[in-house]
Design a protein around this nucleic acid. Structure first.
Length: 420
RNA sequence: GCGGGGGUCGCCUAGCCUGGUAGGGCGUGGGAUUGCUAAUCCCAUGUCCGCAAGGACCCGUGGGUUCAAAUCCCACUCCCCGCGCCA
């Protein structure tokens, strides 16, 4: 969501963004609605002014026992008219708000313009791609032969894209969470385990409403939605708050399961645990001062890199193009880990600066002095570890000739074993 | 789930019974005055419209009654206390 003034004064800025994102949006209609809405505000305000004035008169006359029937008659007609006008004004306000909530975020100048992922830019690369003197297997194969995942029975009980984790993979999953929490705690992040369901207004604050359908599960008969990531719950956590400036940046390590419909992903990554409806994730979420958000963004990426260097997973960092980026983000880095079984880099991390986009929707502001005008802060989010995908990378890259997995050194103490 | 109490402009609080411009304190900022690590006083301190002057809105949310609602009525919601149920 934007400051209405920005849309009014710089429509070209918005227009350029829409073009870069390749999004169809009735901007002229929004501008028209804004004008209507403001005109109606002026009219109703004036009417309220007269009503307030008359009301004072009535009170005076009543006090001095004067006759007030005629003035009350006047008041009645003003009130009637006001009620009619208010209705149209509220309707205008609603349609403006509804439409403006579907407008995507602005784009940072460093973001490459392009329709899709082909325009993404590789920023850096780390690690050596492992070589094997035996036939490399993919994670599906490995998890079957080592009895680590049961997909067939999950399909029976829940459906496609669900899984039962088994044996040491359960431990590896927990170990990644634990390691990630330890890692972020050392960097003074506040660990936070969120509600797994949040209400509609919170969800709308974090993401754009019509993106719900393909991504978010709704709980039937309740005003509740399963979170797609702890980001949704952490972002809305401070909604309607004015935060003391001195405690910024606020860095949270969100832990939660994530639930995703994955509608529209038919045929892609059909098997295995790479693309699933449910997984655990440790997330970095930062509330920052506007002037610090870009440096925070870089810092978050470096934190992610350090984490994967410790595990020892080769990766590359991609800067997403305008068309490939999420609608609430102004700039996104993806970290793609090498996956030996697929002979390719695959996305495991997404690191975004949302500027004041979510903060405006959720009314999250800050100020340094209590008499200062509060201003919107910036929100940033980045995966640290989404367990299933990182496990796929570990399984495939750390496989051994005898068909087992050697566990990365930093994780061994958590798993309690050196091989699976 | 039942019964009781509560939600007021950053924080605390008055006002609600008996409808008529939401008052005070704290904190913070600015100013005034005064010889002293301070006190006292004044102003400012939510949102929206407006270039401004100014105005409107704001008492958990949404309805209703009324010329007029923080105040009366209804519904919902959240918090606190007690009881019940429960991993």
């Amino acid at each position: 969501m934007f400051d209405p003034k920005l849309i009014r004064d710089n429509p070209d800025k918005i227009r350029n963004m829409l073009e870069a994102r390749d999004v169809d949006f009735p901007l002229d209609e929004l501008i028209k609605l804004d004008k209507e809405r403001r005109e109606l505000i002026i009219k109703t305000d004036e009417l309220r002014k007269t009503r307030n004035q008359i009301s004072i008169e009535v009170a005076k006359k009543k006090k001095s026992n004067e006759d007030s029937t005629s003035i009350m008659e006047q008041m009645r007609s003003v009130s009637d008219e006001l009620q009619r006008l208010e209705e149209t004004q509220i309707r205008a306000e609603d349609s403006y708000k509804k439409l403006s909530l579907t407008l995507p975020n602005l784009i940072h100048e460093s973001v490459p313009t392009g329709k899709d992922e082909t325009a993404n830019k590789e920023i850096k690369k780390w690690g050596n791609i492992p070589t094997f003197d035996f036939k490399v297997r993919d994670h599906i194969d490995l998890t079957q032969s080592l009895d680590l995942v049961d997909l067939e029975r999950a399909a029976k009980t829940a459906g496609a894209r669900f899984y039962y984790l088994k044996n040491q993979l359960v431990r590896l999953n927990q170990s990644l969470i634990q390691f990630a929490l330890d890692f972020l705690s050392e960097k003074n992040y506040t660990p936070i385990q969120t509600p797994y369901m949040i209400n509609k207004s919170s969800m709308e604050g974090a993401i754009i409403a019509h993106d719900f359908e393909d991504v978010i599960y709704k709980v039937e008969g309740e005003d509740l939605y399963l979170i797609g990531t702890s980001e949704h719950a952490v972002a809305s956590m401070h909604s309607d708050e004015i935060i003391e400036g001195k405690i910024l940046p606020l860095r949270y390590a969100g832990v939660s399961p994530c639930f995703r419909k994955e509608a529209g992903a038919h045929g892609r990554d059909q098997k295995g645990i790479f693309r699933v409806h449910q997984f655990e994730k440790v997330e970095q979420f930062v509330f920052s001062r506007p002037e610090e958000s870009w440096s925070e963004h870089e810092k978050m990426l470096l934190t992610v890199e350090e984490f994967y260097q410790k595990i020892g997973l080769p990766y590359r960092v991609m800067l997403l193009s305008s068309g490939d980026m999420g609608k609430v983000s102004a700039k996104t880095y993806d970290l793609e880990a090498w996956m030996a079984g697929q002979n390719n880099y695959r996305e495991i991390i997404s690191c975004s600066n949302c500027l004041d986009f979510q903060a405006r929707r959720l009314k999250i502001r800050f100020r340094d002095k209590t008499n200062e005008q509060p201003q919107y802060l910036h929100t940033l989010n980045s995966t640290l570890v989404a367990t299933t995908r990182t496990m796929v990378a570990i399984l495939e890259n750390f496989q051994t000739k005898d068909g087992h997995i050697s566990i990365p050194k930093v994780l061994q103490k958590y798993v309690g074993a050196s091989t699976i």
